[in-house]
């Protein structure tokens, strides 16, 4: 390291990652070590039914992991290399990638890709903001390979699909050895990278209601650049109002990247409900959402900036919903 080099946050973080650690093979970007094989597993199962997956996961407890698209999992395994002996690929299970609409509910198969979501006519018609969010994930390549279930089970605070699903009060259908259970997405995430899933359970389906005809929903993502970036802040808002009084009948605010898990800004929601939607109330709701967020500082942005942007984005999203509602003939 030369003397007098500016050492800002970024270079510190890079240094930390690249520094040699004892017992860990580090990648040298110059040499031929790109051939180096770090993540290794001894078995790769392509299962055909959820039951088969659960059975293998139970037999090899602690040594096996579910893989869907692998876009998060394999990239992380390269960096951290969890000791996993077997991968259970669930993407060939027939029907697990389907998007169906029935009885006012939309059922999203866990291995539907972001590309499937963004092109789905069901979603474009009945839950457009989810299609919007899906079209902003990663890159075209990642959108073809990643999955809805993977985006959620990876449990990144920045998961793009989480805020829009939170405002729809989605339910997660989970299959395990003792049968199936349904968990509200609200309580699905338990921390960064952590969910309520047991090691031998798999996420099968996400169920959301169709968007009410008199409501509108929107998703906004703030990143440093448009492609291949994680959200600094992402916001999803669902809004319905009394058209005569302009009072807020229903409001849900989902936030991403500003807390250990994706969250709902419930105080802001409680503040706005029943109130007239004007500049002042919208701004106050946005400020309430700022207070509810607990962002961290990292290489992408400082916590102060993120919190400030929560206010800006929530306000913007509510206004956008209002615009959409005003343009709607109900």
């Amino acid at each position: 390291m030369g003397v007098g080099w500016p050492r800002n946050d970024v270079s510190q973080a890079v240094l930390k990652r690249k520094t040699f650690q004892k017992g860990k093979v580090m990648r040298d970007p110059v040499s031929k070590s790109h051939l180096w094989k770090k993540p290794c597993w001894e078995k790769y199962f392509r299962v055909k039914t959820p039951g088969e997956a659960v059975q293998i996961l139970e037999e090899l407890q602690g040594e096996s992991r579910v893989i869907a698209g692998g876009t998060d999992l394999l990239a992380r395994m390269r960096q951290e290399g969890f000791g996993v002996k077997a991968l259970v690929d669930i993407t060939c299970i027939p029907g697990l990638g389907e998007i169906r609409s029935e009885d006012g509910l939309i059922r999203l198969g866990a291995v539907a890709t972001p590309k499937d979501l963004s092109q789905s006519s069901v979603l474009r018609e009945k839950a457009f903001c989810l299609a919007q969010a899906a079209s902003q994930i990663g890159t075209p390549q990642i959108r073809n390979l990643g999955t809805l279930g993977g985006n959620l089970c990876n449990a990144s605070p920045a998961a793009d699909l989480a805020p829009p699903l939170l405002i729809f009060e989605a339910k997660a259908k989970i299959a395990g050895g003792k049968g199936e259970r349904e968990v509200p997405l609200d309580s699905f995430f338990t921390g960064p990278g952590q969910t309520v899933l047991n090691p031998s359970e798999i996420l099968k389906e996400i169920i959301i209601p169709e968007l009410r005809l008199d409501a509108s929903a929107t998703f906004l993502k703030l990143g440093r650049r448009k492609a291949a970036d994680l959200a600094l802040v992402s916001v999803a808002v669902l809004l319905a109002m009394d058209r005569k009084e302009r009072t807020c009948q229903l409001i849900r605010i989902g936030l991403g990247s500003v807390a250990p898990t994706p969250i709902r800004a419930k105080q802001a929601e409680a503040f706005l409900i029943g109130r007239r939607l004007d500049d002042r109330s919208i701004q106050e709701a946005a400020q309430s959402a700022m207070r509810e967020s607990q962002p961290i500082s990292d290489v992408r942005a400082s916590s102060q900036y993120r919190r400030e942007m929560v206010g800006v984005m929530v306000e913007r999203a509510i206004r956008k919903c209002l615009e959409q509602l005003e343009g709607k003939d109900v």
């Binding site: 790769y44 392509r46 876009t71 394999l74």
Partner: peptide, 13 residues
């Protein structure tokens, strides 16, 4: 028919 990153695809997939 889909563009994918081949570095993230186990050959078995």
């Amino acid at each position: 028919g889909k563009l994918v990153p081949s570095c993230l695809i186990p050959a078995m997939k």
